[in-house]
């Protein structure tokens, strides 16, 4: 933007500049105070020992069996719910946008997705306990009508699969919301051109459709991963502190210094940041390669 509007640019300029920065300053200040400083503070604290000296002990402290197990199960749950959620969300989005279903269905699904993607946390846990808990409706119907006892078969709502199944309730809608614009961006002419060139629908998706969706898909996938990795309310309401995932471990640490070492708590948080950031950096690297055909 150059100043072509006001002829008296020399006198108007300083005033206008101050307005611009006055408008942006609260935002920057806010970001620094409530996003950047707290994060940096924790990153720093992870390298400070109880005596105030710089140390790597806290980081080394992460490599105990309990903490590594917590990271591992967190990564597995987040990964499984992100991948399954992304695939299911993609399938549903394709069905409602390009599957020749009635028009009204699309807006209904999009609205519902807006609701369900925000229906996370404690109430979601209640809903799944009512559904698949020991006394849940589906559990009981399966037992009395179909004579299948899922709990005796090894299922538990408080387990890996139980939590993954619950997380899918907000992961799938999030995927639908995020991938829909990308699917809309697939031009009808691309599919028509590929048809006149003799390609089957499968060949179109293989060579054109999915490659074009791939960066958006990956980007959303990494977001879903971070989304599940940091989620605690659902898991906490569902399992109390019985499930050993990183956010619950950190929660216990903040509440009552469960690890009896504030530095270790900061290291735990640092680990979470590194993992969610790594997921996003991985996405950026892959999509930069995949998007070399884009402007």
């Amino acid at each position: 933007m150059t100043d072509t509007v006001i002829p008296t640019a020399t006198t108007a300029r300083p005033r206008r500049l101050s307005f611009e920065w006055l408008g942006v300053a609260p935002f920057i200040l806010f970001a620094v105070m409530f996003l950047i400083l707290p994060t940096l503070y924790l990153v720093g604290a992870a390298f400070v020992g109880r005596d105030g000296q710089l140390t790597l002990d806290n980081i080394a402290g992460l490599f105990t069996e309990q903490i590594l197990a917590a990271y591992w199960i967190s990564i597995r749950i987040s990964g499984a719910s992100a991948i399954l959620g992304a695939l299911a969300g993609l399938a549903i989005a394709l069905a409602i946008i390009r599957g020749r279903l009635p028009d009204g269905l699309r807006s209904a699904v999009m609205t519902f997705s807006g609701v369900a993607s925000n229906f996370a946390g404690v109430p979601l846990a209640f809903a799944f306990i009512s559904t698949l808990g020991r006394l849940g409706l589906v559990t009981i119907i399966l037992k009395t009508v179909f004579d299948i006892d899922i709990y005796r078969a090894g299922f538990n709502i408080l387990s890996f699969w139980g939590l993954t199944l619950t997380y899918l309730y907000f992961q799938i809608p999030l995927m639908i919301l995020m991938i829909a614009p990308a699917i809309d961006g697939l031009k009808r002419e691309w599919s028509e051109a590929s048809q006149t060139l003799g390609a089957t629908p499968l060949q179109f998706w293989l060579y054109v459709g999915f490659p074009i969706l791939w960066p958006s898909f990956l980007g959303t996938l990494s977001l879903l991963f971070a989304n599940a990795f940091g989620a605690i309310a659902t898991a906490y309401a569902l399992t109390g502190s019985s499930l050993n995932i990183v956010p619950i471990l950190l929660y216990a640490q903040i509440r009552g210094d469960a690890l009896q070492n504030p530095g270790l708590g900061a290291a735990l948080a640092l680990g979470m940041i590194i993992i969610t950031a790594a997921a996003n950096i991985l996405y950026l690297v892959i999509s930069a390669r995949a998007e070399r055909w884009m402007r």
């Binding site: 935002f27 970001a31 996003l35 924790l42 971070a226 708590g265 948080a269 969610t276």
Partner: peptide, 28 residues
């Protein structure tokens, strides 16, 4: 030219878990 910065900042809350943020608040 500040646009990329804005985009990055507004993406941060999706990457940094809420529990990490609040931990930072409490300590800071």
């Amino acid at each position: 030219h500040l646009r990329p910065l804005m985009e990055f900042i507004t993406l941060l809350p999706l990457i940094i878990p809420a529990i990490v943020l609040v931990y930072g608040y409490i300590r800071l």
